[in-house]
Design a protein around this nucleic acid. Structure first.
Lengths: 392, 392
DNA sequence: TCAGTTTGTCCACATGTTAGACAAAGTTAA
DNA sequence: TTAACTTTGTCTAACATGTGGACAAACTGA
């Protein structure tokens, strides 16, 4: 039933504690580790020597003295293994080879012109194989593959529905595991981005953070107590389909007045066409509208502000429900930031129940953060480090 | 910084594991505890003997043999200590003395005609003193006081705002601690009810549960991963103030189109008056309307269904956001269940994103559950059992 | 040059879990 | 009635691990 506690667990936990300390404060001396963790100096010495044997830690030259013997600095051996993390978007694959700190070694970008799963899958395999070739020799090699997808993923790594790819019931985790035979993690793109931003986007990571991915649809990744929350089956965060306008516009989900019918890229483009904001021979896109806004096209700016108003309503709702520390807006519509940021902040400040608004921060991210990739890499790394503990 | 792991911690954790096993499966033999927990028989024996010394466990007579020596059955000593839990409502105090399993020993109910804090506080103190007198002698005596309040409570037990009591910035935890000198826990009433229902309302407690308290206002208690989620400052769950109708009715919170302006007791009564559903000399109340509905008053039933429709919209939003296993509707409007339950289930099933609705269950609770009291008792008990671990 | 400081290792010791022996107390079947 | 088997609970020796403190090595600063 429950897990019992014995001396082996104690050792594993302490070893993990030492390793985490070294990861977070690398480079660091044994003495400092002992001081920070509260463990005995002798204990730290013995655990560190095992970590060195296992290639997780290396010794570098002596550090600066602080009035006594010079310390031997310990480094986390970030290249003891590598992960491959992918961001599968609509029309593209972004992929990266990362080390065990999540730092990106090599990047690949590929445009996709087909959406059929079988085709896309071979591209995915190709990209991964490419990155494996670029991978330096290391003690542990490839320790995991993480892939973020724009759709609903259950706890078994199965994609139940990815509307913009027109995929249904695809067991991607299985399929990739069969090919590469390493742990594979499949997660919703917004969830991964949320986790990635929490881990890498702040000096001190926020405890409770919501990441709104506002693209063609709207998804939300929730990091509560520094942990990704995904609900009973993994479907939590379907923010695009909360009702903001009773008896509002029909949504393909079968409901009416859904948030994403008012505040998404899709809503933006629909309105732009309806209002004739583009001439006949232009191809409609967010970037095109942004160009016009930059050229001070008042009607476009007005449209941006209207969409921003709806986004602000959604954010206010989230603040009232979750009392979060941080909200991040990502994906395509984060580009509207210059025209809507101030309005949103003002709206939330005025309309969220008083106390919250004093602490919550609303920011915009940019695609260059590679939040999804970094999040997926984090998942893979954490799974690897946990698996180590369980085996030894 | 982090907590280190040594043999003392191991012992504490194992002791807690043994105690929890005994609590959950009382009566149980030492041998069975060893089998269930995976601990060695000898370890269990030694830990149990300490638990007996500390009065947490008692031995009862021999149990039935299963083909060998008859086991000595161990019982959780539920009366080793007691808690007092209160539900402070608008116009009443409900209070109970409970044992360490949360079972109610004695109940008190008191109507309040005043709302001024000083007055109410003396009543609270009186009720607690009454219950203390009714408390049997026990090794640990009163181990904690828990009090659920209809307002916004921060992590320090301070009531920042209780609109229906007209209280602001009241440090209730401090005040009670000063009088009784035992641990005091103050929590929002919906949060407590959520926890109480999770702990005591099901055969197997749901992992992810939302409790909607629909009274004059609407609050939500969230139990995620069997833990109460309260957000950064403790203000999470302000569901009454999420926007469901863009540019809708003004709310006292400063926002417009808030959920509680359409789906609460307040909204119900307002509409009933507006539609002239009561004669001049009747005093308006939910119970009065229910009587009329029971007498088949069609307009009242129609009004109930309209309110139910809004409740369904709110629930659908919650299902889409949280992917919960269970939703419970409590407080005054749960009484409308006979007229709205089916409609709500149907609406949620039709409008929540497909996959969720297949698993989520929406139920109504009744005040007789004493959910808030039981939740507050749980908090107090858990705090007590934790404090034991830390000291020894 | 020497006293003081810091780092890291080593060893005896305390603590707690485990495995297994064992006795007590019961059941079952001939 | 008896003998073989089962179950329970205690006890002991063996083992693993963390702790505290001694100690040597390496360095600083006056």
């Amino acid at each position: 039933m429950s897990r019992t506690w014995n001396q082996y667990i104690v050792k594993q936990e302490n070893k993990a504690l030492v390793l985490n300390t070294i990861i977070e404060e690398t480079p660091i001396s044994r003495a400092k580790v002992a001081q920070v963790t509260g463990l005995n100096k002798g204990t730290v010495s013995s655990l560190v020597s095992e970590l060195i044997d296992n290639h997780f830690v290396t010794e570098s030259g002596p550090g600066a003295s602080s009035g006594g013997r010079r310390p031997v600095m310990l480094l986390f051996n970030q290249t003891a293994g590598f992960t491959i993390a992918l961001d599968l978007g609509v029309g593209y694959i972004d992929a990266a080879l990362t080390d065990l700190t999540g730092s990106i070694i090599t990047k690949k970008h590929m445009k996709l012109h087909e959406r059929q799963f079988n085709k896309v899958f071979t591209y995915i395999v190709d990209v991964i194989n490419n990155l494996i070739e670029a991978m330096p020799k290391s003690p542990y090699g490839l320790v995991g593959i993480g892939i973020g997808v724009p759709g609903v993923v259950n706890h078994n790594g199965e994609i139940l529905l990815a509307p913009n790819l027109n995929w249904k019931n695809i067991h991607l985790e299985h399929a990739l595991h069969d090919v590469f035979n390493v742990p594979v993690i499949v997660e919703n793109e917004a969830n991964a981005a949320a986790y990635g931003e929490m881990r890498f986007g702040f000096k001190t990571p926020p405890e409770h953070m919501l990441y709104l991915s506002i693209g063609m649809g709207i998804g939300m990744g929730m990091v509560l107590d520094k942990t990704l929350y995904t609900g009973l089956n993994g479907f939590a965060g379907e923010m695009g389909h909360i009702t903001v306008v009773k008896d509002g516009i029909n949504c393909r989900c079968g409901n009416t007045g859904c948030f994403e019918r008012y505040a998404s890229e899709q809503a933006l483009l629909e309105q732009a066409i309806k209002r004739g904001l583009v001439s006949g021979n232009e191809e409609m896109s967010v970037d095109l509208l942004i160009e016009k806004a930059q050229a001070n096209h008042q009607e476009v700016i007005q449209l941006f502000k209207e969409i921003g108003q709806y986004i602000a309503i959604g954010i206010t709702t989230m603040v009232n429900l979750f009392n979060p520390e941080q909200i991040l807006i990502g994906n395509q519509l984060s580009k509207l930031s210059p025209w809507i940021k101030e309005d949103i902040n003002y709206y939330v400040f005025r309309h969220a129940i008083g106390f919250h608004s004093k602490r919550v921060t609303v920011d915009f991210t940019s695609p260059e953060h590679l939040s999804t990739i970094k999040g997926m890499a984090s998942f893979a790394i954490e799974k690897f480090l946990l698996s180590i503990k369980e085996v030894e």
